[in-house]
Amino acid sequence: MLITVSGPPGSGKSTNAAGLADRLGLDHVSGGDIFREMAAERDMTPVEFNEFAENDPQFDRNLDRRLHEIATTSDDLVLESRLAGWLAGDHADFRFWFDAPVSVRAERIAERESKPVDRAKAETERREASERKRYLEYYDIDIDDLSIYDAAYNTARWSPGRFLDVLVATVEAYEPVDDEGKAPIEGVNYDF
């Protein structure tokens, strides 16, 4: 089973994808971890690296190509990244989208990264604007189009433990259909 978890920064993707993988006995791959490693290698923050990547599409394409390859060749995996649902295409058995109000996400990021909330909010908004622009330009993906997801959740509505219970129950209730029941995502340029 391939499960994708997508959403904006601070939405709970990493925490819940790791927890879901653990509870279901699946592997976990985080695109965010790979992206942060790429930024650190260049001595940049993720926000700085996002803006740097606007000028050289090869950084995004390399990361997305790698995640696409993982998504299309792996089973028994929870793949987590902002574009995971799009990158997996019709290979995903289940696609989740997580979100929360920007104020909640900024508080989570500020706590995680030991920075003031107002700074985390400003950086998050800059990062999201940068990513939105690049995804549309590179792949013709409107990141705000949630129609490809099987379930979308506002993660601010549950405590972390209860939310994980909701996710596990959702996956356990899933009944796969044959390959003809999976619809490819129309209109997406898969040239990563």
Rank of each mutant, 00 (worst) to 15 (best):
V78A: 05
S103F: 04
F59C: 03
F98D: 00
D99C: 08
P176T: 09
N55K: 11
A173F: 00
F35H: 00
R119V: 14
P116H: 07
Y149N: 02
Q58S: 14
L136F: 13
D140K: 15
T170N: 09
D140Q: 14
G32W: 02
T155D: 00
D150P: 09
N189Q: 07
K133H: 10
R42H: 14
F52C: 11
P176C: 07
D142T: 11
E107I: 05
W97F: 08
V29H: 04
S81C: 04
R127T: 13
I3N: 09
V47A: 07
E131I: 04
N50M: 11
K115V: 11
A110W: 11
W97L: 08
T155C: 00
V168I: 12
M38I: 03
R23K: 14
A173Q: 13
S147Y: 14
A152N: 07
D165S: 15
E175N: 10
T15F: 08
L2V: 09
A156S: 15
R105N: 04
A71I: 11
H91M: 08
F192H: 11
K133I: 05
A120P: 06
G19H: 06
V171D: 01
E48Y: 05
A39Q: 01
F98H: 01
P46Q: 07
Y153Q: 03
L79A: 01
F35W: 15
D145Q: 10
D150S: 12
M38S: 08
F35R: 04
E107C: 03
G7R: 05
L83W: 12
E128C: 06
F98G: 01
I70D: 01
K182Y: 15
R108C: 07
P57M: 11
P184T: 07
R134A: 15
S6A: 14
R105C: 07
D75N: 14
A151I: 04
A17W: 00
S130A: 15
D75S: 13
A88C: 09
E123G: 07
P46R: 05
Y174C: 10
A122M: 10
A106K: 10
K13S: 08
W86S: 06
V78F: 05
M44P: 04
L63W: 02
M38G: 01
S81T: 01
Y138L: 15
S159R: 01
P116E: 14
A173P: 00
L79Y: 02
D145L: 10
V177R: 14
I109N: 05
E54I: 10
K182M: 12
R36S: 06
Y174E: 09
S14K: 13
D43H: 12
V104K: 04
G25D: 07
Y153I: 02
L136Y: 09
G181T: 13
V188C: 03
M1I: 13
D33T: 13
R95F: 09
E41Y: 03
P176K: 14
G31R: 01
P160R: 11
D118N: 12
R162T: 15
A152H: 11
H68L: 08
I185F: 06
A152V: 15
E54N: 10
